[in-house]
């Protein structure tokens, strides 16, 4: 077994996330996939305003820091003028499914040839763990202290039900709750990048990711929460795979 930190990771800096946060794993998976595909130099990241933006310190790739909720549409903008670049928008679930949901939907409808790599930790992490569009029913957050109520707060959003019938290149959901699922998620990310290289169109990979700090859990308990709760509401797997040449 050869497990080497991929070249895209900037090892001169400490990863900036909280202990046990999934962001660091996701960023590494992206860098592994890019290295395997030989596209490190072509990568352009479009970051969101929130915990994910620390990727700009963790990664060596050229990066645009977008506005909150806009990385997907900003990514589509640069991809249109830089078709040789491999462009990855890196929003959280609050960005992609709440404030930016119109652009998530319409970039999918236009089949923009980008990867939306959505980190789903079911909270607004950077602001301190408020209820997000993917917070689970009964989940206690700092803005749903008695638990998320469907009556009061509305239902959680499952992106596979929103985009599941659209003519896009790829839609998948991975999880970080075990080494096996981390490997599986890495394959999804790599497949999506390959599809962008093929020019197949819009790819969205959502990753169920632990937020121990805002879930008030140890990192290890947070993995259990993903396994027993989060991935029950949000099943993992490949939902759309246009089947272009990989």
């Amino acid at each position: 077994m050869n497990c080497k930190i991929p070249n895209g990771i900037d090892m001169s800096q400490q990863a900036s996330w909280c202990p046990g946060c999934g962001h660091g794993i996701i960023v590494r998976l992206l860098a592994e996939a890019a290295q395997e595909l030989g596209i490190d130099d072509r990568m352009i990241m479009v970051e969101d305003v929130a915990c994910g933006e620390f990727a700009q310190f963790a990664l060596k790739y050229n990066t645009i820091m977008g506005a909150h909720g806009r990385p997907i549409v900003t990514a589509a903008g640069i991809k249109r003028v830089r078709p040789d670049a491999i462009v990855v928008a890196h929003p959280g679930d609050g960005s992609a499914y709440s404030i930016g949901v119109e652009s998530t939907l319409h970039c999918a409808l236009r089949n923009e040839n980008i990867l939306a790599l959505v980190v789903n930790n079911s909270v607004f992490g950077m602001t301190g763990g408020q209820m997000s569009p993917t917070s689970l029913v009964d989940m206690k957050t700092t803005s749903s202290p008695h638990g998320r109520s469907i009556k009061k707060d509305g239902s959680p959003i499952d992106v596979t039900k929103i985009l599941g019938q659209l003519d896009i290149a790829y839609l998948a959901r991975g999880s970080l709750d075990s080494p096996a699922n981390v490997i599986r998620t890495g394959k999804m990310i790599k497949k999506a990048l390959q599809k962008q290289m093929n020019g197949e169109g819009f790819c969205l990979v959502e990753v169920l990711s632990p937020c121990p700090t805002n879930w008030n859990m140890t990192p290890v308990d947070a993995l259990e929460f993903i396994k027993k709760k989060q991935s029950v509401t949000y099943p993992t797997g490949e939902f759309i795979d246009k089947g272009g040449a990989i």
């Binding site: 930190i5 090892m11 946060c21 660091g24 794993i25 981390v182």
Partner: peptide, 9 residues
């Protein structure tokens, strides 16, 4: 695979 801080190789 699980280390979020790139400590292990």
């Amino acid at each position: 695979r699980m280390c979020p801080d790139y400590c292990i190789e």
